[in-house]
Amino acid sequence: MQIRDADTGIVLGPAGARGRILLGALAARAGQAVPVRQLIEEVWAGAPPAGAPNALQAHVTRLRRLLTVRQDAAGPGRSTVVAGALGYALRPGAGRLDAERFGQLVAQGRARAAADPDGAGELLRAALSLWRGPALEGSRGGAVCDAAAARLEELRLVAAEALYDLCLHGGRHAQIVAELEELTAAHPLRERLNEQLMVALCRLGRPAEALGVYERTRRCWLRELGVEPGPALARRARAIAGHAVPDTAAHAAGLQGAAPDGGGPLSARGLRQEIARLERGIERLSARRGELVGRLEALGADGTVRA
């Protein structure tokens, strides 16, 4: 988490870990007051020093100074930290937060997808280019920053999936294989990304590798969740095994969202089905965990079964 000069791109700070955590927590709830107690918990990881409120105030003062560097005090884009009865709040100037700009570009890209797929793809690329690493890097570890980072990462992956749908729809599958391989390695349980990689590989005349992606994903799901991947991925594998080259229509529909009753990847029914399937897997995993815990408790210190 950093403050950069908007003109030069130079990193202004914060220099210390606690300053970065404070900035991350305030940015995660930009425009909202974060209680002092919660900020103390976040900044000192549950082990605050004596006089923590005063120490926090000192960090806020240093953060304010950083935010005023090269800013016009009367300008509309000015960012600052304000104190109130409920705590401290970051009030960012318009367009000052990367997360805000990212969301705007993604929304614009989705809105243009049907009428101008190429323009929509450029907007989504621009949105994803704002990412310089993991969300809130250097600020994580507390409840506020961890929750915000998970939400932002999900938004990033959804935007990437939308971009790759457009690329597949436009026949640009060769351009995205390397990116998809990297993302599926980092997120092996992500069905949509794995399906997109399968489609791209198949179109490049590499169906055996596409089916290998399915088998790898299936093994990962069974190992981690105790259930098979969803039916859409299985259908894709069967189609590829039957030598069917995936067309582009499904990907355009996937980006715009299926009909409300269509059961597609973005439909309410499809999402409910996936949630129910995952919940069944969680129940099985919980039961298995209880069984193993019981067996562990039945063992003595030397590994023998207690009488």
Rank of each mutant, 00 (worst) to 15 (best):
A237N: 00
L285C: 08
S286Y: 09
G263V: 02
L285I: 05
R289T: 13
G290T: 13
V293P: 13
A276C: 03
L233R: 02
A287Q: 08
E291T: 12
A259G: 14
C220S: 01
R289S: 08
R280F: 03
A250C: 09
I275K: 09
R236G: 03
L225F: 04
L271N: 09
D261Y: 12
R223E: 09
P246A: 07
G257H: 04
G254C: 02
A232P: 03
E228Q: 09
S267H: 11
L278V: 11
G264Y: 13
D261F: 10
G242D: 10
C220E: 15
P229H: 06
E283N: 09
Q273D: 14
P231I: 03
E283G: 08
E283I: 09
R235A: 13
R272A: 15
G270S: 06
P246C: 05
E274V: 11
D247K: 00
R288Q: 07
A244H: 15
R269M: 02
V227H: 01
R238A: 06
V245Y: 10
A268Q: 10
A287S: 10
L285D: 03
R284M: 01
R269N: 11
R280I: 10
R284P: 06
R235K: 12
G226A: 06
C220L: 11
T248N: 12
R272N: 10
R280Y: 04
W221L: 02
G281K: 00
A253H: 11
I282L: 07
R272K: 08
C220P: 11
G290R: 10
R289N: 13
L266K: 14
D261V: 09
G226H: 08
H251Y: 09
P246I: 00
P246N: 04
A259N: 08
A232N: 07
A268W: 08
R223C: 09
A237F: 00
G290H: 09
L225H: 04
S286V: 08
P229N: 01
A253V: 10
I275H: 07
A252I: 13
Q256R: 15
E279F: 05
H243D: 15
L255K: 05
A241C: 01
I275P: 02
E228Y: 06
G254Y: 02
E224I: 03
E291F: 11
H251K: 05
A276F: 12
V293M: 03
L266G: 15
A276H: 12
